[in-house]
Amino acid sequence: MASEAVTKGQAGPWADEQIELLERMLLIRHAEARLAQTAKDVGLPGGVHLSIGQEASAVGVCSCLDVDDWMTSTHRGHGHFLAKGGEVDSMFAEIWGKSSGICKGMGGSMHVADFSRGIIGANGIVGGGLAIATGAALAAQLDGKGRAAVCFFGDGAANQGVFMESMNVSSIWKLPTIFVCENNGLSEFTVSSTVTAGKLSDRARAFGMPVEVVDGNDVRAVRSAAKAAVERCRRGEGPSYIETVTYRIHGHLEAEDLILAGGSYRTAAEIDAWRAEDRDPVSRFRALLAEEGICGADRFAELDQRAKEKVDAAVTFAEAGEPADTKLVFELMFVEPKA
């Protein structure tokens, strides 16, 4: 079978695009691996929820978006933030609780946001972004410039009532909302299948919108589904639902072992199966690009190194930052400090 690369070319714009997808995934992977290490070694101020293993979903979707398309994310939002063009420096400074953070240290890991890039933000409430994205989609529709509003959420959030509400409103008003359900099979510390009736995608079908269930660890499959959904938004044809079937390798949060005190909701074998080279989204895409002659071992080593260096620089930036300004809390909430 002729590989896609043969028709699309081993060099040129299409190949460059593939390299960009890989680079973005590598940046997310290295950034989050570093967060895990730092949390373990010296600790980070708050809870850290990592998306290692889910990078293809974030990158595949966000690679189809323009800077002024809107995006809401989840508590597991570092990947979405970086995929939509957020800076790793200011994200790390935020997680370190510094004034130089993208939210000046007021939000932290669960609330990274960058409105200059359409990143409405991560959200500490499971399902918290669904209605907000729908509101941004309403704004986009009123603006009439063809913007889309992407809402990332998990299979856990799909059991929140607001999921049905926001799909209903998006559908009746033909809003440019793209519901991206990152189905990792886990609802915090509970296996989703034990708390979920029917198929999630059927819920979206019931509201009359196009539904695509894709291999969420295949960045091209995700990208192709997202592209169709974005084009639909641009044409004013209304919302879409994309389900990216994936898996999170790390715990619900980094302190998980401590919290669960020996308890477990999954087996080591299950994690290993998803971690395998032919299943992990980053190594899979790396192997594919090698096979297609787009990215050989040397090129890959170079990209990998560059991503690591960016992450090192981000740690330096974060550590060097000034502590957050306490006065800002009052200013931002319109309150006079108590005398």
Binding site: F115, I120, G128, I132, T134, G135, A136, A140, A149
Partner: peptide, 13 residues
């Protein structure tokens, strides 16, 4: 839930 959430999204946008 969605009315109030949409208010936040539309205002943010």
């Amino acid at each position: 839930a969605t009315i109030a959430g949409m208010a936040v999204g539309a205002a943010a946008a």
